[in-house]
Computed example of a mutant assay.
Amino acid sequence: MKSKAKYLTQIHDMAKFLKSMDLLEEFNPNPEKLGLNLAEIRKLSFEKLWKTHFAGNCYHFHLLDGALINFNVESQSFSYFGNPFDCMTFTDFLHEHGYMDDSDKYVLGPDYEQYVSECAIKEFPFAIRYDYDETSYNEGLHPVSHLHLGINNSTRIGIKKLIDPEAFIYFIVRQLYPEYWQKVLQDSKQISRIEKAKSAMPAIENKYYNKKDQIELYLE
């Protein structure tokens, strides 16, 4: 595992990347909580899960469309929660109420939470979580490095690499925001940085990729 300091540096760098893509609504460098545990997640509906993270200051990135991204660097678990509500962005909400400075967001934070709670719920909100968990590895059943798609299901897509915060953000932007990814493809410096990040991703140890694991389709 890379050092915690390295991961935190990447998170700050990815804030700059998302801002350059005009995707970042808010960067929260010091979340009050690293993330909910699995038992807590299973008790909540998707919309309550999003509201709990937002109201509890439990995220690093608040994207322009309301999605939340959180990095638990201690347990190597990274989460993306799409906004389940069909509502205006926080910035638009501030502007509509006459606040033009981002520093005013703390004034209207509770009002925005109330506004969001009254919005219609999207039909297909989406979540992605990446986990690296050596203690739960089970050959052929529980990959040490894997992606979860959605919540409260048994989906675990094995990955032969160890994902870090930088790679996770690139994955999210490419898969969920292809129109913004087009900007990346037009930036030779950014392409070079991504290629460098890909080549630096370490492979999982051989002891976590055994005969029964090789039967299924792993992401390279």
Rank of each mutant, 00 (worst) to 15 (best):
L63F: 09
S154M: 13
G35L: 08
N57W: 13
G98E: 01
S103N: 09
L63Q: 05
S117K: 14
H148R: 09
H146P: 03
Y137P: 13
L18H: 12
W50F: 07
D104M: 02
I41D: 10
S45I: 02
Q76G: 06
K43T: 15
A15N: 01
A120D: 00
Q76S: 10
P29R: 07
F17Y: 15
S75M: 13
L24M: 11
S136W: 08
P110W: 08
V73E: 10
E113D: 10
F78C: 01
T52G: 07
D102P: 10
L141Q: 11
E26T: 03
G140H: 14
S136D: 10
I69P: 01
L49E: 07
H95M: 02
G98D: 01
A55F: 04
R42Y: 02
R129T: 05
A15W: 07
L108Y: 13
Y80N: 09
N37S: 05
L64Y: 03
P143F: 05
N37W: 02
D104L: 01
L44C: 10
G82L: 02
T89C: 13
P125I: 03
L38F: 06
A120I: 05
N57F: 11
N37E: 09
N83I: 12
K51R: 05
T135E: 12
E74T: 15
L108E: 13
E96Q: 15
P143W: 02
E40L: 14
Q114R: 14
E74G: 14
N152Y: 09
F46G: 10
L68K: 15
L44K: 14
H97I: 00
G109L: 08
M88W: 09
D131W: 01
K16H: 07
S154V: 14
L38H: 06
F126T: 01
Y106G: 05
R42W: 05
L34T: 11
D86I: 06
G66L: 12
T89S: 15
K51W: 01
D92I: 12
V144H: 03
S117I: 06
H60Q: 06
N72P: 11
Y99H: 12
A15V: 05
L63P: 02
N138K: 06
E32F: 06
A55C: 01
A39E: 12
K51E: 04
I41A: 08
L24F: 15
D65A: 06
H95E: 14
L149H: 13
E74F: 12
E32D: 03
L64V: 06
M21L: 15
T155K: 10
D102G: 02
L36H: 00
E134C: 11
I41M: 03
F46Y: 15
F78H: 04
P84D: 07
E139I: 08
S20H: 08
L49S: 04
H53N: 11
L108F: 10
K48I: 01
L38I: 08
Q114M: 13
F61E: 13
L108W: 13
Q114L: 14
H97E: 02
V107A: 04
